[in-house]
């Protein structure tokens, strides 16, 4: 079916897309260009002068072992957040899908954490886990775990992972629940008659049919973990102890605003931008084209 609209005037279509293009150019392309440009300069802390250094900022970054460690930290952080947030939310969605009485009530409550700002989410977990005041830290002590994320880097990373995942569970839950509800009930019944128990039904019928949702959420969760968790880290561990939770996006801020090294900070943003482009490509290539089954 031909759905294309033909305009009589040549000007009108351009006028109609102008606002969108203007916004994209001014708020996305211009800053991106500025970052790209700055990444080739070394600038003094007060912005009075700058010097062209070509790729030196990039070279220094990749020669800096702590930056490379940040890559690894980010990867561990991103994958853990995605896996934890998705598996918990899938479990909750399966449970909520079975609830008959007061279903909307449960669902509403499960969606609430999404309304909590990332910084607040971080602070809540920070308090809960605080070695001297936190209730969770107290429980952990009772079962023999000595929790101190001020000193222990692994524990600090675990803290930000848990906080970031907790925040994302609601979002994933919504999508998984919608996905589950779109699976026809008769398929599950047919599988039950075909002698598949509940667990087998889940892994052979339900989970494969959720593939499109799962894949979409995987990309969204990774993007969230890589780029949207700055406030959370900033409000809790501030990248510490000793860079243990210094994920890439936090490092951009730290290098630029604390270290006042604008050139290096810009170079880091460009690298992050490259990552986003890659992930967007993956999403368009595989997700938008609908996972075939």
């Amino acid at each position: 079916m031909q759905k294309r609209v033909v305009f009589r005037s040549r000007l009108l279509p351009y006028l109609l897309v102008l606002p969108q293009i203007a916004i994209t150019l001014i708020f996305f392309f211009w800053p991106a260009y500025q970052a790209l440009e700055s990444s080739f300069f070394i600038e003094d802390a007060f912005g009075f002068s700058r010097q062209w250094v070509a790729m030196q900022n990039y070279v220094e970054l990749f020669e800096d072992p702590s930056y490379l460690r940040s890559f690894k930290t980010t990867l561990i952080f991103g994958v853990s957040v995605a896996v934890m947030a998705m598996s918990i939310s899938l479990g909750l969605a399966v449970a909520a899908n079975r609830v008959v009485k007061a279903a909307t009530g449960y669902r509403t409550m499960l969606i609430w954490p999404y309304a909590v700002a990332p910084a607040l989410a971080g602070v809540i977990w920070y308090f809960l886990m605080n070695p001297s005041l936190g209730i969770v830290a107290y429980w952990l002590k009772n079962v023999g775990v000595d929790w101190n994320h001020y000193l222990n880097g692994d524990q600090a990373l675990l803290l930000v992972i848990v906080a970031a995942a907790w925040k994302q569970v609601s979002y994933n839950f919504l999508f998984f629940l919608a996905g589950l509800q779109s699976i026809p009930k008769s398929l599950i019944e047919a599988a039950a008659i075909d002698r598949a128990g509940p667990v087998r039904r889940f892994w052979t019928i339900v989970f494969p049919l959720l593939t499109p949702t799962t894949f979409f959420l995987l990309v969204v969760n990774l993007v969230y973990a890589f780029f949207d968790t700055f406030a959370l880290v900033h409000a809790t561990t501030e990248g510490g102890p000793v860079d243990a939770t210094s994920i890439l996006v936090f490092r951009v801020y730290n290098t630029g605003f604390i270290g006042q090294d604008y050139g290096s900070s810009a170079a880091q943003s460009v690298i992050l931008m490259g990552l986003v482009i890659m992930m967007t490509f993956v999403q368009f290539r595989f997700v938008e084209r609908k996972v075939q089954y």
Partner: peptide, 14 residues
């Protein structure tokens, strides 16, 4: 030990 044919067939689409 029964088998059922559903109105919408309920074939596993994947």
């Amino acid at each position: 030990d029964i088998a059922m044919v559903f109105q919408n067939y309920a074939l596993y689409p994947h």
